[in-house]
Design a binder for these strands. Structure first.
Length: 675
DNA sequence: GTCCCTAGCTG
DNA sequence: ACGTAGCTAGGGACT
């Protein structure tokens, strides 16, 4: 920065900073009115919010740095950045920071003062608003009563769909490093600063570094944690170029990045964009949780944990170790003469569930550790942490990332509501008097495998509506009248079917099905003789991917796998993994993009009918809805919408979506829909 | 405080 | 060579 601060760390003695061009502060009504008037003449306006954790999101206690999530907003706006460029603007554009909730001594407008002018811009129908990660800002703005229309553009989502390694670089990187990255790195960071440094200005992070250094000094002098030095405590003039820099980069990245979208990319981007307000709304409203159920379950699990821990110490004959420490347990097992055959990824002796199950018959110690692990997992990850995250209306708000996976699936965190075990699904309940409706695709990935491979047996199975695992069992092992044998064969067949999607070998099939490994080798060979087209398709996928270094799914979503075309890395562990990834990405990714399209179609269906029903959760191939009693008639229609994505007509297999419902909770459901 | 490792939950 | 895609918790080693 241009001016060295003379004094730091006191709100009322903030150092004076000079705001460099082309950045501007908007702190008075005339300045705001002038800025909005000019913005309304622009075709594209970049917008960003600066935030702090909500004031009531206080640390849990002195030592924990975790915050309560008491409200959907999670973060509170402290200021808004707005950038645009008119023909009459300087060539570098006009970039503004509008402080709203900075330290009291700061000259700034209030939310209510800016509401009307800002609404004119945020709702202007003809202006494209571009954000980097719009969903976040939409919810921050919503917490202050602002809406944005039309649906914003998003440079983060556009960048997630573009071959970033083909974009021109401005940071003059070492050519060897670029080459290495082309061959090894699947996807560079999608962070705004990272994209800006690579493609706009190598020094794009200079203001961020200035801010960080200020915060570090402030934290040191005040004796507080760095993360407690929130941005609203900083001198506003120091914030202006940093904050408005973000919208400057967003504005400049937008045409650059979206210019690299191909036709399929444009279509995928349209779906991603349509998902922004849908996911934002799911996050904002959250899922209702039965707090009393969780508290009860927590007590029961605690008893089970205490019991299991005592069992472990008794079986071990000593108690000078930590049951939570796998390393100490491995040592203990070794001293007790228990042999651990499996290995971890790093080659050490593994004491995972499979190892414990192998030993459980002969060792009470192993059985007790299993019980302990199960109870601590459920209580720690699902009961206690979920309770901490409930808001004052007992709703939990996760964050859904549309760009969170390399296949196209959504990812969820804070908490992850996509891996709630059945026992804990009982804690998720509908609003009073409403029904929870679950609609999930039946065997979506195997249907896509059948489509891709055109395997006649598999296509026939789905055309006839067979149970695919039973049909596979009959095709591979022949018919049997013994129901027990049929069940055993179906289990193996199910694992064989999953093996296609994941690329599992005999060892994994053996572990999953409990059959001997040698037998599984034979099963796999027979399986690929029966479903010969399937094996051929997988080989073709790999051959094509070797030539191009990438795969593209049914919607044209691409995943770069540069290692596949690098002959020098052939026959390495990473290479073989990339082959499995190539196949899995087509299957999982095609299903994911179909599912995203379905979410958009379902949300549009509900919107068009002004329905109160809403999507609550999205778990890869399942949607969970809250449905009020008077909208029961919509449910079969939702099912039909789900069965008719745009690609349904081109698929060689029928799609099927199954309904289940419950007025109680997510676990205790009944299949079908009748009333 | 950071990071990695191991484990375990989901589709 | 032989299990895809995620997130989170805890221990343990490091700074």
């Amino acid at each position: 920065m241009s001016v060295v601060p003379v004094q730091m760390g006191l709100d009322d003695h903030m150092p004076i900073y000079e705001i460099p061009a082309p950045y501007r502060k908007v702190a008075t009504l005339p300045q705001l009115e002038r800025m909005i008037a000019r913005a309304l003449e622009a075709d594209v306006v970049a917008i960003d919010t600066e935030t702090r954790p909500r004031a009531r999101n206080l640390p849990l206690d002195g030592k924990s740095r975790k915050y309560h999530s008491l409200t959907a907003g999670l973060n509170e706006a402290i200021g808004i950045c707005i950038s645009f460029r008119l023909p009459s603007s300087p060539p570098t554009g006009e970039h503004h920071y509008l402080p709203l909730r900075h330290a009291a001594s700061t000259k700034q407008l209030t939310i209510e003062q800016v509401r009307a002018p800002l609404d004119r811009l945020l709702l202007a129908p003809h202006i494209r608003k571009v954000f980097h990660h719009a969903k976040f800002d939409l919810n921050v703005l919503r917490a202050d009563g602002f809406e944005v229309a039309p649906v914003p553009e998003d440079t983060l989502l556009a960048a997630s769909l573009v071959p970033l390694h083909e974009l021109p670089r401005v940071d003059g990187p070492d050519p060897a490093a670029v080459l290495e990255e082309r061959y090894t790195r699947e996807r560079p960071s999608l962070g705004l600063k990272s994209l800006a440094c690579r493609h706009l200005d190598p020094a794009a992070d200079r203001h961020e570094r200035a801010i960080t250094s200020f915060r570090e000094t402030y934290a040191r002098r005040r004796g507080v944690h760095l993360q407690d030095v929130t941005y609203d405590l900083l001198p506003v003039d120091l914030m202006v170029p940093y904050a408005a820099g973000d919208t400057r980069f967003t504005l400049e990245l937008f045409p650059l990045v979206s210019g690299f979208l191909d036709a399929a990319g444009e279509r995928l981007y349209a779906t991603e964009r349509a998902l922004i307000p849908i996911l934002a709304d799911m996050e904002y409203r959250g899922a209702r949780v039965d707090r009393a159920f969780l508290e009860r379950a927590g007590g029961e699990y605690q008893l089970a944990i205490d019991q299991a821990r005592a069992d472990v110490y008794r079986a071990a004959g000593r108690s000078d170790f930590d049951v939570d420490s796998t390393a100490q347990l491995v040592r203990l097992f070794g001293e007790a003469g228990l042999v651990l055959s499996g290995k971890t990824a790093s080659g050490r002796a593994s004491l995972d569930k499979a190892a414990l199950v192998r030993l459980a018959k002969s060792s009470p110690l192993a059985a007790a550790v299993s019980a302990y692990r199960k109870a601590t997992k459920l209580k720690g990850t699902y009961v206690d942490s979920l309770l901490e995250k409930l808001d004052h209306t007992d709703h939990v708000h996760c964050s859904l990332k549309s760009h969170g996976t390399r296949t196209g699936r959504l990812s969820a965190d804070g908490p992850n509501l996509q891996n709630i075990p059945p026992a804990m699904r009982a804690a998720f309940i509908p609003p009073e008097g409403w029904t929870m409706v679950m609609i999930d695709y039946s065997q979506i990935e195997l249907r896509l495998v059948a489509h891709y491979s055109r395997d006649p047996v598999m296509l026939d199975a789905f055309a006839r509506g067979d149970d695919i695992h039973t049909r596979t069992a009959i095709e591979v092992f022949g018919p049997t009248d013994d129901p027990e044998e049929a069940a055993r064969r179906r289990k193996i067949a199910k694992n064989l079917n999953f093996a296609i999607c994941y690329g599992a070998g005999p060892a994994r099939i053996s572990e999953m099905s409990g059959e001997p490994i040698e037998a599984c080798k034979g099963h796999l060979e027979r399986f690929y003789r029966v479903f010969a087209r399937l094996d051929r398709w997988k080989k073709e996928v790999v051959l094509r991917a070797r030539a191009t270094g990438e795969v593209a799914n049914l919607y044209g979503r691409r995943r770069w796998l540069p290692i596949l075309r690098d002959a020098s890395r052939r026959h390495t562990r990473e290479y073989w993994k990339a082959e499995r990834v190539a196949v899995n990405t087509l299957i999982q990714g095609s299903a994911a993009d179909m599912f995203k399209e379905t979410m958009v179609n379902v949300a549009e269906f509900l919107r068009a009918r002004k329905a109160r029903s809403r999507i609550v959760l999205s778990v890869h191939d399942e949607l969970v809805f809250y449905v009020p009693p008077e909208e029961a008639g919509l449910v079969p229609e939702l099912q039909r919408v789900m069965e008719q994505p745009s690609i349904a007509g081109e698929l060689l297999v029928p799609l099927a979506a199954d309904i289940s419902h419950s007025i109680a909770n997510w676990r205790d459901k009944r299949s079908g829909w009748t009333r």
